[in-house]
Amino acid sequence: MSIPTHFKSGRTGPGAAYVSDHEGSVHARFMRLSAYALAPLGALSAWWLVGVVGKPLEGVRAEIGRPVPAIVLLAFAVIGMIHAYHGMNEIIVDYVHDEALKERAHKANKWAAIAIAAAWTLAILLIAAPK
């Protein structure tokens, strides 16, 4: 038993709006790969940040001033903010329906991601810089 529908597969006809144009596959692949990168970077970042708890400022500077911890913390910040930026853009596309508000939300998302990544990077560089 089948139920008749008006849906027709393909790019033309009544079902054209429901056929994937594969635009989301690049985004999905990027989000998956960046999540794979963020897992070990997040664990290493947490390891180093928990390791400096209770140390004096000079001990923190010595620990984070080494190349590997500084690079891991910076990579975590930058990749994390790019991942968050793209994720928030998808939320905006899905749930904000007013075009003017959508445009403002995209701009605010872009500037917030840049500001957070820049603040994190500046903080790491200032902590790691020798005095």
Rank of each mutant, 00 (worst) to 15 (best):
M1E: 10
M1W: 05
S2R: 13
I3W: 06
T5M: 02
H6E: 08
H6Q: 10
K8W: 03
G10M: 06
G10H: 03
R11I: 08
R11M: 10
T12V: 10
G13S: 05
P14I: 05
A17N: 06
A17Y: 08
Y18S: 12
V19E: 13
S20L: 04
H22N: 08
H22Y: 08
G24A: 07
G24W: 05
S25V: 11
S25P: 00
V26E: 14
V26F: 12
V26R: 15
H27I: 14
A28H: 04
R29K: 14
R29E: 13
F30Y: 11
F30D: 09
L33S: 11
L33K: 08
S34C: 10
A35I: 03
A35G: 14
A37E: 02
L38C: 01
L38M: 15
A39V: 15
P40N: 06
L41Q: 07
G42I: 02
G42H: 00
G42K: 01
L44A: 13
W47V: 12
W48I: 09
V50M: 13
G51L: 12
G51M: 06
V52N: 05
V53N: 02
P56R: 05
E58D: 15
G59A: 01
A62C: 04
E63S: 14
E63D: 07
E63A: 15
I64C: 07
G65C: 09
G65P: 04
R66W: 02
V68K: 07
P69G: 02
I71C: 05
I71R: 06
V72I: 12
V72N: 00
L74E: 12
F76M: 11
F76N: 12
I79M: 00
G80S: 05
I82F: 10
H83E: 02
A84K: 13
A84I: 10
H86N: 13
G87R: 13
M88W: 07
E90F: 09
E90G: 15
I91P: 00
I91M: 12
V93P: 00
D94L: 14
Y95T: 13
V96H: 03
D98N: 15
E99M: 14
L101Q: 10
K102T: 04
E103F: 05
E103S: 14
E103V: 12
R104G: 00
A105G: 02
H106M: 13
H106G: 03
K107N: 12
N109L: 04
N109K: 06
N109M: 03
K110N: 08
K110M: 08
W111K: 07
W111Y: 12
A112S: 12
A112G: 08
I116R: 04
A117L: 03
A118R: 05
A118G: 08
A119S: 11
A119Y: 00
L122W: 09
L122M: 14
A123N: 05
I124W: 02
I124Y: 01
I124F: 01
I127D: 01
I127W: 00
K131P: 06
K131D: 09
